[in-house]
Design a protein around this nucleic acid. Structure first.
Length: 152
DNA sequence: GCCAACGTTGGC
DNA sequence: GCCAACGTTGGC
């Protein structure tokens, strides 16, 4: 099993929104970054665990755990001209962008804040706390996963 | 292929 | 709201 972190702005889509979905699942569409695309298309597998991270808010941090519910498949919002993330260079024959579905597992007992995560030498290599990081989907090592869960 | 301009992300 | 970081675009 592999581990991941996915960012979402809570005003757009929060951990509570995920929990309240009918089957507690949500297609993770709208990602328009090649590194993140490659991870969703090629590497994320059913059952992989995901830290759900709130960005661009009062207290940025990890707020919950989700799991991969459906592996990479084309993001058809890319060829919808009315969609916010429309990309005219993507089409059904040669989809450029992919998504996975994630399912709510649980909220963490508290928000494990970005500020706190920056304090630990154990997380020096964690992409989230590295300078200028902007990836919306990133890998988490098993050691990092366990360490962060231990902070709960 | 280089690189300046531009747009976006996201912490603060 | 500011602005640093960084990806993308497009002129050359």
């Amino acid at each position: 099993m592999n581990f991941w972190l996915m960012k979402s702005e809570p005003e757009e889509f929060s951990i509570d929104d995920l929990r309240q979905r009918p089957r507690k699942t949500e297609p993770w569409d709208g990602v328009r970054n090649y590194q993140a695309r490659n991870m969703m298309r090629d590497e994320m597998k059913i059952g992989d665990r995901v830290f759900f991270y709130h960005s661009n808010c009062d207290e940025p941090g990890i707020v919950g755990i989700a799991e991969v519910a459906k592996e990479g498949y084309p993001d058809d919002t890319a060829w919808d001209p009315n969609d916010k993330h429309y990309d005219p260079k993507s089409d059904p024959e040669t989809p450029r962008w992919y998504r996975v579905d994630i399912r709510f597992v649980r909220k963490t007992k508290r928000t494990i804040s970005l500020k706190e995560l920056k304090d630990y030498a154990e997380l020096e290599e964690f992409p989230l706390v590295r300078r200028g990081n902007r990836l919306s989907v990133m890998p988490v090592s098993e050691a990092q996963w366990n360490f962060i869960l231990g902070l709960e």
